[in-house]
Design a protein around this nucleic acid. Sequence first.
DNA 1: GCAAAAGTGTTCCCTGTACACCCATGG
DNA 2: CCATGGGTGTACAGGGAACACTTTTGC
Lengths: 229, 229
Amino acid sequence: MDIDKYTSHDRVLVAVDCIIFGFDGSQLKALLIKRGFEPEKGKWSLMGGFVNRDESTDEAAIRVLHQLTGMHDIYMEQLYCFSDVNRDSEGRVISIAYYALINIADYSEQLQLEHEARWFPLNSIPDLIFDHKDMLEKAKDRLQQKVANHPIGFELLPGKFTLPQLQNLYEAIYESPLDKRNFTRKVLSLGILNKLNEKEKESSRKGAFYYVFDKAKYSKLHHEGVKFI
Amino acid sequence: MDIDKYTSHDRVLVAVDCIIFGFDGSQLKALLIKRGFEPEKGKWSLMGGFVNRDESTDEAAIRVLHQLTGMHDIYMEQLYCFSDVNRDSEGRVISIAYYALINIADYSEQLQLEHEARWFPLNSIPDLIFDHKDMLEKAKDRLQQKVANHPIGFELLPGKFTLPQLQNLYEAIYESPLDKRNFTRKVLSLGILNKLNEKEKESSRKGAFYYVFDKAKYSKLHHEGVKFI
DNA sequence: GCAAAAGTGTTCCCTGTACACCCATGG
DNA sequence: CCATGGGTGTACAGGGAACACTTTTGC
């Protein structure tokens, strides 16, 4: 690209920060990393990084997420731009926050060690640096409203999952219990689930049938939106 | 503030662009300005400006809007960060888009002349510079979903308005007709409207009663959200 | 008196919600 | 045989959607 022609204006650092949600079968969690350097060394933080001159913020968010998790093709969405003048104690940095949904089982323990990362249940988040707590809260809100109209909750689950697991997920996102019969009827009526002839037997004696989603119908609803819950 | 301590990273220009919606009683419109300088001189554009080092993007958006309209206390909300590397042909600029709702009658003709600004109905928007068309489209989508759950449509109306005007507004936002009886029942059931003993007689022989909204109840719903339409 | 827009109720269907018992299995 | 969690149906209520005629008034 050419040299900028806008010469008389202030330039600022632009960062991205990622709120990474995961679900372990019963709890909704966020992936945080421990800062290994000052300031705020030892405090927990969202994963983030600076936006390079030759990449969009979307690209930067994907890059950061890949560096820190090794994962590709992750569901990710821009959340909000946080820009308070003093939000970062080290200088003027505005941050574009993104939230991502990942299947917690795909995240390797190896990477967890390398980056001093840890999954925290949303109801016991430690102190976070800067305005990262605000980001997390906003991401939670956004996830709640998004999930009501788009079947993105599935991004948080493994390829095959049981109805009780799915229900647990939605209960975790909404932080409130749902009626089992009503929930089952609703999700099955969408016609995006295919029942497998196989049971998950870890969590109960009887065992719960696995389901997978019908990729075609799923992406249709994903795109169009539905009243989901 | 201190000097930035992050020295080894790229800095970029950050702009804000404002999508300003107005309603003239029958059509939903956007306020655009004609670029008086190259590049793209003569093309239409959203109102925008650069973010200074000592202000947040919210503050910048408020400033820009004030400079160009003379208006204060406008309903405004952050829309999205647009950051494609080549979105601005003159350099690397990311832009935080905001959308604003104003009462079209409050906008002075004087300012319109000064800035070569014009209101365009949403269905006949001219070519816009850069990615401003994308911004406008996204703002329209966001307005539609926002308005479904929050009574912000009122921001677009004068202090007193008639039910037919209100209905016109919602029909304009949704780009589809609504049933008069159902609409009336619904909005009156929210209990945020007070009927005046005065009629608007411009647009019909019979005349339509004016309403104002009950400030207290209105702001409650404004904040909490309701299923509005 | 007529044209033009305002105002006003009822019915039906669908969807959301509340609610309780039997089933399969492992120990 | 018993404890645990999985799976299933029905009844009621409330809200959304469809629908047409009367009223007022300026010309």
